[in-house]
C-alpha cells in the first residue's frame, strides 16, 4: 500500500538496462538519464559499499586502487551481478527523482534481450522491484527499438530492426505489435573493443585498456573501407619492454580488427532474412532494415549491411536512445489502449 502512495509522487520510467549504458526515459519528459552501467565497489574488510555509480565509476575503470573495484554488473545484455545491479538501479531511480522528498516507487518498464531466459528475466524483474519499483513490466528490446525509431509496428507490414547494443545484437522482424522472428548474437560494442585490444596486442605488441579501445573505435573505427584514411595516436604498455609506448593506428587497421565481429552480425542478419516468411520478406525488401543502438554509430555499418544483404539500410535517428524512448512510448500506448499487456512480454 505504501508503494502505491509513494507511487503518486513517482513518475513512470522506461529503462534501457544495457550492458554499456543505462538510459532512463520519463513519460512526457524524454531521456533524463544516460550513464554507463558501471559501479565502483569499495571493499573494507568483509564489508562492501558502493563508491560510485555511472559516469564517475566509469572513469575509475582500470584505474582503481586495490580496495576499489569498478565492475559492469551486466554482461551480454543480462544481469551478471544481481546485488550490484540492484544498487545501480536504485541509484539511477533516485537520481531521476532527486527532487522528490518521498522515496520514489515508480512503475517501470525494462527492456530485455529477446533471447534472455526466464531466469534472466526474473532476475531483472526482482532487481527492479528491490530497487523500489512498484510494478515492473518487461519489453523485448527490438520491439522497443522499433517503436523508438518510429517504425509502423502496429501495421500488418513486416519491418526489420537490428539493434546493436553494448553486449548483444538483437535482430527482429516485427509486424502487428508483435515479434515475428528474432535472433540475438552476443556481439556488440564491447566485442568491437575487445577485437581492437586483441588486434593491437597482436600487431603492435602493446596492451591497451578498454577505454582506449573504445576511443579508437569512436574516432577512426569503420565497417567499410573509407576514401580517406584517418589516424590516431595511442599509448599502451609494450609487452616486450614492459614500459608505455606510443604508436599510431589508422582506420584501415581498425577495419581489419573489426572484421570478425562485423561478419558475425552480417551472418546473423542474413540468417534472420533466410528464416523470414515470404510476405514479410517482400515488405522488408521494399522498405529495408533499420539500425538502432550505439553500434549503429560505427561508421558505414549501414553501407556494409546494404552491400551484404542487397537491402536498403537506414540508421534510426538518435539510435542510442531508441530503446529507452520506445519503452516510454510503449508505456503510453499501453495506457492509451487500457491494456497493460499490449506490448509487454509478461
Amino acid at each position: 500500500m505504501f508503494k502505491n502512495i509513494r507511487g503518486l509522487f513517482s513518475r513512470d520510467l522506461s529503462i534501457d538496462l544495457g550492458t554499456a549504458n543505462t538510459l532512463i526515459y520519463v513519460r512526457d519528459q524524454g531521456i533524463v538519464l544516460n550513464e554507463p552501467s558501471v559501479v565502483a565497489i569499495r571493499v573494507q574488510g568483509t564489508q562492501k559499499s558502493v563508491a560510485a555509480v555511472g559516469l564517475d565509476a566509469k572513469r575509475m575503470l582500470g584505474r582503481t586502487p586495490g580496495n576499489i573495484t569498478a565492475i559492469r554488473p551486466l554482461k551480454d545484455g543480462v544481469i551478471a551481478d544481481f546485488l550490484v545491479t540492484e544498487k545501480m538501479l536504485k541509484y539511477f531511480i533516485s537520481k531521476v527523482h532527486e527532487n522528490s522528498f518521498i522515496r520514489p516507487s515508480p512503475r517501470v518498464l525494462v527492456c530485455v534481450p529477446c533471447k534472455s531466459t526466464e531466469v534472466e528475466r526474473r532476475a531483472i524483474r526482482e532487481s527492479a522491484l528491490s530497487a523500489g519499483a512498484r510494478d515492473v513490466r518487461l519489453l523485448e528490446e527490438p520491439m522497443a527499438a522499433a517503436i523508438g525509431a518510429g517504425l509502423p509496428v502496429q501495421e500488418a507490414v513486416g519491418t526489420m530492426v537490428v539493434d546493436i547494443g553494448g553486449g548483444t545484437t538483437e535482430i527482429a522482424i516485427i509486424s502487428l505489435n508483435g515479434v515475428v522472428l528474432s535472433d540475438t548474437v552476443r556481439v556488440g560494442g564491447d566485442r568491437f573493443d575487445e577485437a581492437i585490444v586483441a588486434y593491437v596486442r597482436r600487431t603492435q605488441g602493446s596492451l591497451i585498456g578498454e577505454a582506449t579501445a573504445e576511443r579508437i573505435k569512436q574516432e577512426i573505427g569503420a565497417a567499410y573501407p573509407q576514401k580517406e584514411v584517418r589516424e590516431i595516436d595511442v599509448r599502451g604498455r609494450n609487452l616486450a619492454e614492459g614500459i608505455p609506448r606510443g604508436f599510431t593506428l589508422n582506420s584501415n587497421e581498425i577495419l581489419e580488427a573489426l572484421q570478425e565481429p562485423l561478419s558475425m552480425i552480417v551472418q546473423a542478419v542474413k540468417g534472420a532474412l533466410e528464416q523470414c516468411p515470404p510476405e514479410l520478406a517482400s515488405d522488408i525488401a521494399e522498405t529495408g532494415l533499420v539500425l538502432t543502438g550505439g553500434g549503429a554509430l560505427l561508421r558505414d555499418l549501414d553501407v556494409l549491411l546494404a552491400e551484404e544483404t542487397g537491402l536498403p539500410v537506414i540508421i534510426a535517428e538518435d539510435p542510442l536512445t531508441c530503446v529507452a524512448r520506445g519503452g516510454g512510448k510503449a508505456l503510453e500506448l499501453m495506457d492509451a489502449a487500457g491494456n497493460a499487456d499490449l506490448l509487454s512480454t509478461e
Binding site: 513518475r11 519528459q29 533524463v32
Partner: peptide, 18 residues
C-alpha cells in the same frame, strides 16, 4: 525526435503538484 531533456526541467511541475 524528442530532444533529450534534463530531469531538472520537470522539477517545477512536479513540485507544483506536491
Amino acid at each position: 525526435p524528442e530532444p533529450v531533456r534534463d530531469a531538472a526541467v520537470s522539477v517545477y511541475r512536479h513540485q507544483r503538484i506536491l
